[in-house]
Simulated assay, not measured.
Amino acid sequence: MSARGVEADELGARLKVYEGRPAAVAGVGKDPVNLPMIRHWCEAMGDTNPAYEGPDAIAPPTMLQAWTMGGLSGHTGRTGAYDELLGLLDEAGCTSVVATDCEQEYLRPLRPGDEVVFDTLIESVSERKTTKLGAGYFVTTRTDVRAAGELVGTHRFRILKYAPARRTPPAPRPRRPRPVVNRDNAGFWEGVAEHRLLIQRCTDCGTLRHPWLPGCNACGCLEWDTVEASGEGTVYSYVVMHHPPFPAFEPPFAVGLVELAEGVRMVSSVVGVPYDKVRIGLAVRVEFRTYEDDEGTLVLPVFRVVEGDG
């Protein structure tokens, strides 16, 4: 084994010691669950579910982590173990970090007035992994959230703490990022591969929804079918990406939030006009683009500005 490999193994053994250690004990949410924060969240997400309004309002389940955040001043209950773990990684050259994913489990809704208490555990530290970003370690924490002594939800959060890889000349044919396909959205991507834009429809209340979800966010029904969108829409909002640059993309370019004629919104590229000509209200039409790389064929929907509306 090389000296570098021995060093990595030694670091990995030191990191494994932190598995199972608490990162926060009896942490207290900065604020009780409250309607103003719920309103701000719903406005930011565009969520108009009536369950989040009025005297019987509940908090959106996906706000679970928001009630535990310490903000710039931090929160009570921190043990120092997590900071020590990150410090070891910093000393080993793993000075960069990226959040990779999170998982949440909901046991009961939070309601305005609930006081949130939480415990956070360092659940796992991976072996040394080599990624395109660089070599490092995945660290997973689990936060158990309680209200009135009752477990209301669990939040798992995973980061990659890594040493940035040395920059290499760009590949001749950069590969476009692949969408994350799972059991909840596989039908959408199957439709895209057939050049069809499919929207989920609740079979109970008829509400259309996008992105695809396992259940209706209007009535909670788990049964659904699909309708094929016309592909017509308008630019509801947009951003122009300048930085950071990604392989297979040439900034600046426009990314739009497109409102389809059926009423749902979808994020995708806006093409057909220069990035600085994109405007809210532009009429667009879906266009399916095919890319070939070493992983096979990739079909993606983009939205082209309708001729005469640019």
Results as ranks from 00 to 15, higher is better:
Ala3Phe: 10
Ala3Thr: 11
Ala3His: 10
Glu10Met: 09
Glu10Trp: 01
Ala13Pro: 00
Arg14Pro: 00
Ala24Gly: 06
Ala26Asn: 12
Pro32Cys: 04
Val33Asn: 09
Asn34His: 09
Ile38Lys: 08
Ala51Asp: 12
Tyr52Leu: 03
Gly54Lys: 14
Ala57Leu: 07
Pro60Glu: 05
Thr62Trp: 07
Met63Gly: 10
Gln65Trp: 06
Trp67Leu: 12
Thr68Val: 11
Thr68Ile: 07
Thr76Arg: 13
Gly77His: 14
Arg78Phe: 12
Thr79Phe: 10
Gly80Pro: 02
Leu85Trp: 09
Leu86Asn: 05
Gly87Val: 01
Gly87Leu: 08
Glu91Ile: 02
Gly93Val: 09
Ala99Ser: 13
Ala99Glu: 11
Thr100Leu: 08
Thr100Lys: 08
Pro109Ile: 12
Pro109Arg: 13
Arg111His: 15
Gly113Glu: 12
Gly113Thr: 09
Asp114Trp: 06
Asp114Phe: 08
Glu115Lys: 09
Asp119Ala: 08
Ile122Gly: 09
Val125Leu: 13
Arg128Met: 14
Thr131Asp: 09
Lys132Gly: 15
Val139Gly: 07
Thr141Leu: 06
Arg142Gln: 13
Thr143Ser: 14
Thr143Tyr: 03
Asp144Ala: 14
Arg156Met: 05
Arg158Lys: 15
Ile159Phe: 07
Lys161Arg: 15
Ala163Asp: 14
Pro164Ile: 12
Ala165Phe: 09
Arg166Leu: 09
Pro169Gln: 12
Arg173Met: 04
Pro174Thr: 03
Arg175Thr: 00
Arg175His: 00
Arg178Pro: 00
Val181Arg: 13
Asn182Cys: 04
Asn182Thr: 14
Asp184Gly: 01
Phe188Leu: 05
Glu194Trp: 01
Arg196Val: 12
Leu197Val: 11
Ile199Tyr: 02
Thr203Met: 06
Thr207Asp: 10
Leu208Tyr: 11
Arg209Ile: 03
His210Lys: 05
His210Ser: 02
Trp212Gln: 05
Cys216Trp: 05
Asn217Pro: 00
Ala218Lys: 06
Gly220Trp: 02
Leu222His: 03
Glu223Phe: 07
Glu223Lys: 14
Thr226Tyr: 14
Glu228Gly: 10
Glu228Met: 04
Ala229Leu: 07
Ser230Trp: 09
Glu232Ala: 15
Val239Gln: 03
Pro251Glu: 10
Ala254Cys: 13
Val255Phe: 00
Leu257Thr: 05
Val258Phe: 03
Glu259Thr: 12
Leu260Arg: 13
Arg265Val: 12
Val267Met: 13
Val267Cys: 01
Val267Gln: 09
Ser268Lys: 07
Ser268Met: 02
Val270Arg: 01
Val273Cys: 14
Tyr275Ala: 03
Tyr275Phe: 07
Tyr275Ser: 02
Leu282Asp: 09
Leu282Asn: 08
Val284His: 02
Val286Met: 00
Val286Ile: 10
Phe288Ala: 10
Phe288Ser: 10
Thr290Val: 05
Glu292Pro: 00
Gly296Met: 01
Thr297Ile: 09
Asp309Glu: 01
